[in-house]
């Protein structure tokens, strides 16, 4: 079970003056059960990239395959693919449309061809998973708080029981509490449902804390694809493309440069506590 991109190129509005090469020779494989962070500044191509994963966008050149099959092959059922590869867009709460929370979440399962009863069961399971209780089922999505709306929207994708879950900046616009809530939720789902999670984020601190593998995009190409710890060593290069390593990385490197015996590769607070080699 994997998504594989081979020599993928994508060109916007080919043949016009607006022609823009959004993806350049992308080669990438995401394996089962990975928790991947995808990072890059606005316009780096990461949004275009994730739309290739579920066939919403067709590459101008190259092959995208899922479980070994070319998803743009003649007989390939892309509608099914979209149910297996769930994509949560930015500000997903803006796509809620039903009058009641439960009905909205059941939209996906219904499109999967499930019976009304089954669709509602799936919707209830998904809501339980994101921590939205029964008392919310019949509420209008528009009465909820920002964080709750977002959870409902994510449940809308989870109800389809995707094997791969892709989220485009799921914490944008939320406050710290809302952000931690969503990230903890993703970590739990990743563990419980054993699904692949691809997280697009701007926050290096979040990436460092949650993901095993990190992909850095710049100008349509993959710049780094490695563990966060290894990538943060290139913090100078990251800065050049408008990104930065977590503050902890800078601190540990400064301490090392000042001649102290610390672990300069620590990237999270937990690691730093160990790596500082200081005792009461």
């Amino acid at each position: 079970m994997s998504i594989k991109l081979e020599n993928v190129n994508y060109i916007y509005e080919d043949g016009t003056i607006n022609r823009f090469r959004a993806l350049k020779d992308i080669n990438l494989e995401v394996n089962d059960g990975e928790f991947v962070g995808l990072i890059g500044h606005t316009g780096s191509g990461k949004s275009t990239l994730i739309q290739h994963f579920n066939g919403l966008v067709k590459p101008t050149e190259g092959v995208v395959s899922y479980n070994g099959e070319d998803i743009f092959g003649e007989k390939y059922n892309r509608k099914n693919l979209r149910l297996e590869v769930g994509l949560v867009f930015q500000y997903p709460e803006h796509q809620l449309f039903e009058a009641e929370v439960l009905q909205d979440v059941a939209f996906g399962p219904r499109n999967q061809g499930l019976s009304e009863k089954e669709a509602l069961i799936k919707a209830k399971e998904a809501l339980a998973l994101v921590g939205i209780g029964e008392n919310y089922y019949n509420k209008s999505p528009f009465e909820l708080s920002g964080g709750e709306k977002r959870k409902v929207a994510i449940a809308g994708i989870l109800a389809m029981e995707p094997k791969i879950l892709i989220l485009d900046e799921p914490t944008a616009g939320l406050d710290p509490k809302g952000r931690d809530n969503i990230l903890e939720l993703l970590k739990r789902i990743h563990g419980e449902r054993k699904i692949t999670v691809i997280l697009v984020s701007h926050s290096m601190e979040d990436i460092a804390k949650y993901v095993d593998r990190m992909i850095v995009m710049n100008k349509g190409s993959i710049m780094y694809d490695d563990s966060p710890k290894k990538i943060f060593r290139y913090h100078k290069e990251l800065e050049e493309i408008g990104l930065a390593a977590p503050q902890i990385t800078y601190l540990m490197q400064r301490l090392k440069e000042s001649g102290y015996d610390v672990d300069e590769n620590a990237t999270t607070i937990e690691e730093a506590l160990k790596g500082l080699n200081i005792n009461a």
Partner: peptide, 30 residues
């Protein structure tokens, strides 16, 4: 919005006039 609803399995292309009109609701409301 169209892309997002398509990611939830929505289908805007098939079916008769009535079904297609109905399939626009998830776009028009948001």
């Amino acid at each position: 919005i169209m892309k997002a609803q398509r990611a939830r399995g929505a289908d805007f292309e098939s079916g008769g006039v009535l079904r297609r009109a109905k399939s626009m609701v998830p776009i028009l409301v948001p």
